[in-house]
Amino acid sequence: MSVIQDYLNKCAAIVETVKQQENEIQTAARWFADSILAGRMVHAFGSGHSRIMVEEMWPRYGSFPGFNPIVELSLTFHNLVVGANGQRQAMFLENVSGLADRILRNFDLSTVDTALVISSSGTNVVPVEMAEIFQQRGIKVVALVTKDHLEASLTKRPDGKKLNDFADLVLDTGAPVGDSMVHVPNLDTPVSPGSTVGGAMLINSIKAQVADYLTQAGHPPKVLTAGALVGTQRATELFEAAYDEHAHRIAHMYAKVGVASYVSDNKTH
Rank of each mutant, 00 (worst) to 15 (best):
M91T: 15
D101L: 15
G66S: 00
G122F: 10
T123P: 01
V96W: 01
A100Q: 11
G86N: 10
L116P: 06
I118C: 04
G66E: 01
V112P: 02
V112N: 02
P59M: 13
N79M: 15
A100C: 11
S74I: 00
I103P: 09
N124H: 06
D108K: 13
F92R: 05
L75M: 12
L93H: 08
Q87I: 14
S74L: 11
F92E: 08
I103C: 14
G66R: 04
G98D: 05
R88V: 14
G122V: 06
T76E: 06
V128E: 01
S119F: 07
N85C: 09
P65E: 11
N95E: 11
S63L: 01
I118K: 01
N124P: 10
I103A: 10
E94T: 08
H78D: 11
L93A: 15
A84Y: 14
V82D: 05
G86A: 08
E129Y: 09
G62H: 00
Y61I: 10
P127E: 05
A100R: 05
F64A: 03
N68D: 12
S97P: 10
F77L: 15
A100Y: 06
R88M: 12
V81Y: 04
I103K: 01
R105H: 12
R60I: 10
V125A: 08
T111I: 07
Q89Y: 13
F64I: 03
L80R: 12
P65V: 04
E72C: 13
L116W: 03
G98V: 02
S120Y: 08
I103D: 09
S97R: 08
E129M: 01
N124R: 06
V96D: 00
N124W: 00
V125F: 01
N95I: 03
L109H: 06
L104Q: 08
N68V: 08
T114H: 10
P65C: 14
G122K: 04
T76W: 05
R102T: 11
N106F: 09
R60A: 08
V128Q: 01
V126E: 03
